[in-house]
Amino acid sequence: MRTIQPSAESTILLLRELVSHLRENRTQLREEWARRITEAQLLTAMTKEEIFAEATSVYDNYVEVLETGSVEALQAYARNLSERIIPRGVETHEVLGIVLLLRDVLARSLFKKYQADFDLLNRVLDAYEPAANRIANTVGVGFVQERERIIRQQQEAIRELSTPVLQVRERLLILPMIGVIDSQRARQLTEQVLRGIRTNRAKVVVMDITGVPAIDSNVANHLVQTVDASRLMGATVIVTGLSPEIAQTLVTIGVDLSKMNTVGDLQGGIEEAERLLGYKVQAEQISG
């Protein structure tokens, strides 16, 4: 333990020296960095002024991490930066690219400063490299996490949007289903239908699957279960819009759909539902 102590202390001293070097040469190094970003054709979605402004913030954050050893402020900044640049189409490789460029620019300036003393240069790099790598890591991970967060959010939104439960008449619900149904969506759908039946005191649910491109045995199983569970809650489910291709495929696989109440199209389904509920829709006689 005792042997490590002085080296840790000298690391702190070296980092302090490093920080003052980076502060003194801030203007020149920052410009060098911005120039190399443009040269490498990174951040092409941003203007020169914007790149310089972000470069300044990243540079100052960078120096701060070297000084304090804490990446918290940088993490917050990286998140904020990602939020701003992701909608503009900045890619992961660009973000990693600019941080690695900064690491290189700063390392070069250290080579230059300490070229006369190889031993000291080595010790300075020993202090600099782990900190620099940690910074590159923080910014890269921050960017990717923000991207993942956005993707998750959009997935949630799509899921929410994809199966609205609509009330057409007293006790009659319609579910227009569109797009690919995986098991998760199928499960969610069952829940939504059952909840819809409860809150709307529905007697008939028309489930339209015209917009569903494929149904395999697992999804069919979920549909059958939804129909069964709805029946337990006192509601009849009418499935409409089964395409000829899907109908043929399901029969070939051997899914038992005899318990399912199916009607060719949505219009027929609604008419059947109205009949079940005792509604009579009549065209008004228009005179004159």
Partner: peptide, 30 residues
């Protein structure tokens, strides 16, 4: 499932066959 459908379409399959192939692949993947 989607890859199988578009690959089958490129090979000249159509209509019901595309759905059948996509469904078979879906079952295998599941």
């Amino acid at each position: 499932r989607q890859q199988a459908r578009s690959f089958a379409a490129q090979l000249g399959f159509s209509g019901t066959d595309l759905t059948i192939i996509a469904t078979a692949v879906s079952e295998m993947a599941r």
